[in-house]
Design a protein around this nucleic acid. Sequence first.
DNA 1: CCAAAAGTGTTGACGCTACACCCATGG
DNA 2: CCATGGGTGTAGCGTCAACACTTTTGG
Lengths: 245, 245
Amino acid sequence: MTEFIEDDHISVDCVIFGFDFENLNVLLVERTLFDDNNEVVFSDLTLTGNHIYRHEDLDDAAKRILFNLTGLENIYMEQFHTFYHPDRLKAKNDVLWIESIGKNPDSRVITTSYFSMLDKNKIKLVKKDRNVAWYPVNEVKELAYDHKLILDKALDSLRLKLAHEPIAFELLPTKFSISQLQRVYEVIMNDKYDRRNFRRKALRMKYLIELKERQTDVKHIPAKLYMFSKDVYDVVKSDYINSLI
Amino acid sequence: MTEFIEDDHISVDCVIFGFDFENLNVLLVERTLFDDNNEVVFSDLTLTGNHIYRHEDLDDAAKRILFNLTGLENIYMEQFHTFYHPDRLKAKNDVLWIESIGKNPDSRVITTSYFSMLDKNKIKLVKKDRNVAWYPVNEVKELAYDHKLILDKALDSLRLKLAHEPIAFELLPTKFSISQLQRVYEVIMNDKYDRRNFRRKALRMKYLIELKERQTDVKHIPAKLYMFSKDVYDVVKSDYINSLI
DNA sequence: CCAAAAGTGTTGACGCTACACCCATGG
DNA sequence: CCATGGGTGTAGCGTCAACACTTTTGG
C-alpha cells in the first residue's frame, strides 16, 4: 500500500472561500498546543492544507483536502501561487507545533496554494479531530506560518479572476436573481454598484439566460430568475475580453 | 559550505522570452545524449532551469538561473505556475537523460516556473557547457519533459499580464517611439492594431511621458520619443483597471 | 398600510472602430 | 525622386456614470 505515504517535501494549502450573501468567509483550522500539564502553550489559526501523497499530483491533493473537509467534489479550484523559503516554517510557535506532531522542523517544505469558492450554506463541515470553522476574511488579522501572506494573495487572485471570468456562478444556486449576482460582486470586491447600471451590464452577458420562473415567498416583488450557461459562455467568451490596448 | 548543496526535490524553470521587433523568442537548451560509442541517442530541447540550492527561495533561484545565462539582474520575472506529477519525468528519453547525469529518475521533483522578458539584442548569451539559443516561440513544436506545457502556460500568462499591466516597457529601450510600443503588443499578442487608434489609446496613458527628443538616422520622419514612468504609473494605475462588471 | 426589494430610462461625456492623406528624412 | 514610416481627424455608434420613482408582495 504505497498509496497513502506522504511526500515530506510538498504540501498543498487550500484557501477555501465561503459566501453567504453577507460576508466572504474563509475556512480556517484552530491549532492549539498543550504542554505536559495540559495547559495551552498557544492557540492560533491556519489555512487548510496537507502534505501530498506520493501517488498524487497537486490538483488531486487540493481536491482531496477540500473533499475531506466539505464532502464536496467538482468544485471550482484554482492554483494561484507557490510559496517556499528555507526558513518558512521556522517561527517559534511553528517549530514547537511541528515537533509536537512528530515531524522534523528542519525539513524544507514547498507549498502550492489553491483557492476555491463555494456557497457556505450548501455544505456541512466535516470536522474530524480538529476545529475547522468559517471566519469572515475581513476579520482575519494573523495566521500561523506564512498563511496570512497566502490568504492575501489568494484574495488578490480571486478578485482578479472574478473581474475577468464568470466565476460568480460558483457561489449561487442554479437559478438566481440579478440582485443576488450583484451581491456576489459587492461582497467579494468589497464595493457597491449602482443597481440599474449593474443590471444593464449583467444582461448584456449573453450567457446569462432568463428563465420563466420568479422567486416565491419573498415579501416584495418576486425577482426574475436567471441561469448561467457555460455552453453559451464557451462560444461567446471572446466578446468579453478587454485590455489596456 | 552548505551554500551550494542542491535541494533534490525542488526545481525552478525559467521561460525567458526575448523580443527583437520581429519575433517573440524563447531561450532553450539543447539536450543531446551520446552512447558509449559517442553516437547520438537522441537530441531535443528543454527550457532553462535548475534545482534550487538549500539556502535559496524560489525567486532567488529564478534570478540566479537568469543571471547565469544572460548576466542580467533586475529583470522582470514572474512566477506563474507550479508543475508536479509523480510521473512527470518518466518519459523514456527523460529517464535516460536523468540517469546519464547521475541523478535518480525516481525522485519526485516539483518545478515552479517563472517567465521573464527582455530585449534580446541587449544581451550576449553566456553559453558555458551546453548549447543555449533563442527560438521563435511560434516555431517550437515539442520540448523535453513537460516543458511544452510549461511554455504554453507561460505564453498565456505573459499575454494576460501584457493586457492588464504596463510590462511592455521591459522590452524597450528607455526612450522609444509609439510604433515600437505597438510592435511589442503586436508581436506578443500575435495580432495587428490600427496605428491611429493605437496611438490614441497609448497617449491616454498618463505614465507615457513625451520627451523633447526624436529618433536620429532614420530614413523617414524621425519619431517622437517617449519614456515610461513607474512613479506616475504607481499613482494613476487605479484609473486603468477594467472588468466584466 | 407598511417595509422591502424589483424594475425601469435618460442625459451628457467619453471610447470605440474604421478609414486616407500628406510629410520629413536618407539614400 | 523614391521608399519608408510618422503623424493626423472624423463620423457613427456603444458604453459609461449618475440619478428617482413606481410596483408588487408578505405580514
